[in-house]
């Protein structure tokens, strides 16, 4: 479960790292991804994980154009500011609009995919039980993180994205089209939310406000792992996941939330840049 939190946080951290914007709509993007995956699986009868070939491109372009059409104009209006506040407000607006649109279109019902080959699959070692879809979630998180890392390090576009994230103006001077970079970064961030959605769909419910549950955890993880750090997002996710699954064995489940938030505060006090954050960025 922690790795799926990590996957959600990964998209958030990519978008933050590049755009320097906290994307409040990220949970909603995850929710959109879950609905896309749900309908893709229900209509085509595909194996849930094969629906990735539909969900990822759909989500990529959804993110790409969301950035291009909705967020870019605001960005242009605020181009002199390093961390544009209004964009954050716009993403909050996008969050509300997406959640309520889904509520209008699909209603508040809870959906789950009944007949999928992964549902309820377990690997048993005596007393230990591991959920198969969650195990695949972990694999997906590691592969995605590795792929994103490779993309940022090795490809031309990836380098352009990193350059822009370091210094927007200098990158522009070098002939990088910063808004294209933003679109692509937002698209990648949304696509990772799509991957997280696909790994969730086999065992989790789909409903319009599902994103909120993952949103808050995503923020905590991103801060914990260090804003903008890919490895940090995954590791932060695993840490939170471990606290959530081991904690309740020793105390009531409600306490784990207190621990998670306590840890969050502790990290903010001791190492505000997060476990893997880069100091000079602050």
């Amino acid at each position: 479960m922690g790795s799926i939190y990590g996957l959600t946080a990964l998209g958030l951290t990519i978008i933050f790292g590049v755009l320097k914007v906290i994307n409040f709509a990220h949970g909603s993007l995850l929710m959109v991804g879950m609905y896309v995956a749900y309908w893709a699986i229900v209509f085509t009868g595909l194996h849930p994980y094969i629906s990735l070939i539909i969900v990822v491109p759909v989500m990529y372009f959804f993110g790409f154009y969301l950035q291009d059409i909705v967020i870019k104009p605001i960005f242009k209006a605020e181009k002199d500011v390093r961390e544009p506040i209004t964009v954050i407000i716009v993403t909050t607006g996008v969050w509300y609009i997406l959640d309520n649109l889904t509520l209008l279109i699909f209603g508040p019902q809870y959906r789950g995919i009944q007949d999928n080959p992964l549902r309820g699959k377990m690997i048993e070692f005596g007393e230990m039980m591991i959920s198969v879809p969650k195990l695949w979630g972990f694999v997906a998180a590691v592969i995605t993180a590795a792929a994103v890392y490779w993309f940022f390090q090795k490809t031309r576009m990836g380098r352009a994205i990193r350059a822009t994230s370091l210094d927007r103006e200098a990158a522009s001077l070098m002939g990088i089209n910063q808004f294209k970079v933003y679109n692509v970064a937002f698209g990648i961030g949304t696509a990772t939310a799509g991957i997280a959605a696909v790994t969730l769909v086999p065992f989790y419910n789909i409903f319009p406000t599902v994103g909120v549950l993952f949103d808050i955890k995503g923020f905590i993880i991103v801060v914990l792992g260090g804003l903008g750090s890919i490895g940090g997002a995954i590791l932060g996710g695993i840490i939170i996941g471990l606290i959530e699954s081991i904690g309740p064995q020793f105390m009531t489940a409600t306490w784990t939330e207190a621990i998670v938030y306590g840890l969050f505060l502790l990290v903010l006090f001791v190492k505000p840049s997060g476990l893997f954050g880069v100091k000079y960025d602050w």
């Binding site: 909120v212 549950l213 996941g241 699954s245 309740p248 009531t252 489940a253 409600t254």
Partner: peptide, 9 residues
Amino acid sequence: EPYPSTATD
């Protein structure tokens, strides 16, 4: 055992 209704897991 009480648990938070918003639990994801």
